[in-house]
Design a binder for these strands. Structure first.
Lengths: 157, 157
DNA sequence: TTGTGTGCAAAAGCTTTGCATGTTG
DNA sequence: CAACATGCAAAGCTTTTGCACACAA
């Protein structure tokens, strides 16, 4: 069940990416689709280097340059989201078939948890109107200490 | 009026920083206070390099290492806020005497506008409770196209 | 006086770029 | 077959680190 849903999603994103490449007169190279597949087989947040390493492990010979290039393309057609969770390092996640959400980050163990709150959409549209911005997206990160790390801290006292 | 308020604030942040250094048994060096003064004489968002350049222009011989070190210290005692507006570059702003706010960023011209909405505090405390995180701070950025850039875009069509 | 802070420069880490080669349309 | 994409390595940019000297406590 999960796998058939997974392959269904992969088919859809492949079509979207394919159409995007056609529309922009870009080439459909095997490297680009390998990267798309690798990203959609993951369920977590990852950075460019991790993606590069995983592709290498799978004997897919894709260079860093191509990884960065393709991440940019996928970001351009909204198939991935790009984040900066306080570090000087871009992290990504797939976004198709994954409902809009924001993040809570543990400043101790760096764990990332997702959450949804409809009020953010309201703030977004209200502020866009008020300040005359055409808002395209947002990023809300809450930073704090998760339950597990709170216990660790208490032990130390 | 503005200047007297400015110097009043500067006195206060100097005291806070001074106390923080004492409490942590760190030294009160002239460099650290030069940097604090420079930051509180600005009203915008800046990065480490801009701060370094401005100090150099004013003949204050402070090294990059000290700038980064001091930014870290000031961040530790909440006298500055640190942001990542989508770029791989940390940007800072003074935070004392400046009420809590979030940011709208124009993706075209990079202009940053501040706004406040009390609902964010509510989301923050609700989610902290729900997910058992002790939330310390948050970062909400809205991204879009500002009025001016919308006009530029329309002209181009 | 002692050890922390500083300046300087080198190194590190992420990302981009240049160039020769390969491959898509 | 022409233009674009790729791989590789070098360069670019921000930030961190190592070391000798300076100076706050």
């Amino acid at each position: 069940m999960v796998n058939s849903r997974q392959s269904e999603i992969f088919q859809e994103v492949k079509n979207i990416f394919s159409a995007h490449l056609e529309n922009h007169q870009l080439r459909k190279t095997p490297e680009r689709f390998s990267i798309l597949e690798e990203i959609y087989s993951r369920n977590d947040h990852f950075d460019a280097e991790e993606l590069f390493e995983d592709l290498k492990k799978k004997q897919l010979n894709v260079s860093r340059a191509t990884v960065y290039n393709t991440l940019e393309l996928l970001h351009g057609c909204d198939l991935i989201k790009k984040h900066q969770f306080g570090k000087n390092l871009a992290q990504y996640e797939k976004s198709y078939g994954h409902k809009q959400h924001d993040h809570i980050i543990c400043v101790d163990c760096k764990k990332v948890v997702e959450f949804c709150d409809p009020r953010i959409q309201q703030i977004q549209s209200m502020m866009g109107e008020l300040l005359n911005f055409k808002i395209t997206h947002h990023s809300l990160n809450l930073y704090g200490i998760c339950g597990t790390c709170q216990i660790q801290r208490d032990k130390r006292v």
